[in-house]
Design a protein around this nucleic acid. Sequence first.
DNA 1: GTCCAGGGAATCA
DNA 2: TGATTCCATGGA
Length: 297
Amino acid sequence: MDSFKEQSLVIKNQDSFDLKDIFECGQCFRWEQNQDNTYTGIIKNGVLNVKILKETNVNCEIYCDIEFKGYLDKDIKDVVKDYFNLETDYLKIKRELSNIDNNLAESIKYGGGIRILHQDFWEMIISYIISANNNIPRIKKIINAISQKYGRKLCWQGKEYYLFPTCEELSKANKEDLRNLGTGFRDKYIYQTTQEILKIGLDEFYKLDNTKDIEKRLLDFQGIGPKVADCIILFGLNRFDTFPVDVWVRRVMNELYIHEKDEAKVDKKILLSFAEEKFGSLAGLAQQYLFYWRREN
DNA sequence: GTCCAGGGAATCA
DNA sequence: TGATTCCATGGA
């Protein structure tokens, strides 16, 4: 029997928190803007509604309205704190990155309200397998279709929402089922990776210390290559010492730093070593500011 | 009709 | 190792 828990929550004096920057910078696929400028999203086991109460130029008050379904092993306040990474000092991070060069300073001036969300690791694995050679509106559509068919339903303010299915729930889908939901050639990747994770679980990934070791293990799954693995690590584990390279990052990095005439000829190894040297342990965040900045301008 | 999208696997040199 | 090609799908 599922239990329901509804609660609201006010978080005061929060810096670096802009709803559009956070939810539209490309890191998440299950948040939508409402007509009243709030955002509603479906996280691991609940629905969350967020609005800004009061805003100054450095910080703001956030109002969260939450409904959860199922077993909740921690206080809702802690769930929100964890999901938005509220313990992370973004003022410090932004200062550090802005000092690296003018490009980063500009991109941070544009997307200064970004926070990397701490999303569910399993959900990131499947979501970013879907993202391969795909566009964001369609990725969202596919994830919603999968959730509606295999995830649990819950209602919030008279509207229905569907949680992203657990590994066990999604393991009921065969390749044809997945294909019918619009996954295309990724059907087999989702199927095989789900079956594999059902067998071995994901505990080992939380025990690994080194980011490179985590990436190496992720690459064993079908449908996970370097870029997808890096996104899973960045958005599912919040390790910032990783640098996902997609077409946009390649483009902006080439324009700003590499200056290769033919963008397709940019060597990924050179790009990665450059990023590691220049951005260091904050590479993942630098990547997100640059990605958002370039994609929106 | 053609190109592109937060790429990856399979194949071949 | 490195470069090519194929892979579904839908919107521009």
